[in-house]
């Protein structure tokens, strides 16, 4: 077992416009990317659980040629609105770091 944070070269979150938050999980080595993809530890349901959104609102992608996994969700609070704490959405990825990968 390993933590996703130890396997990925970059885990990041960012606005995709003011209304959508997107997560990128990127890898340097094809075999590490394939291991994470094969493990089944990541999917729309996992993201939905961590970010408290319905699974049908999660857009989830494996990007083989970029060695990357991506998920997008409706922003918990619209960018810049009252209650938003992260204008660029850049610090919302931390819960992904601890996902255990076989």
């Amino acid at each position: 077992m390993a933590k996703l944070g130890d396997l990925a070269s970059l885990i990041r979150s960012k606005n995709a416009g003011p209304f959508v938050l997107t997560f990128d999980i990127m890898f340097d080595e094809p075999e590490v990317y394939r291991r994470v993809k094969r493990s089944g530890a990541l999917g729309a349901e996992v993201v939905a659980g961590l970010y408290d959104v319905p699974a049908e609102d999660v857009r989830f992608f494996f990007c083989d040629n970029a060695l990357a996994i991506k998920a997008s969700i409706p922003r918990p609070v619209i960018q810049g609105d009252l209650g938003d704490a992260d204008g660029h959405g850049g610090q919302q990825f931390a819960p992904l770091i601890d996902i255990e990968i076989e």
Partner: peptide, 30 residues
């Protein structure tokens, strides 16, 4: 190749399809 492929992820909700006024850019088979 990886850095260029990965750029399509940045700040986009969908890494393969990008909607423009006049149509949709499809990078699925790039």
């Amino acid at each position: 190749p990886q850095s260029v492929a990965a750029h399509s992820l940045y700040e986009n909700a969908d890494p393969f399809l990008i909607t423009e006024s006049s149509g949709t850019l499809d990078m699925t088979s790039a």
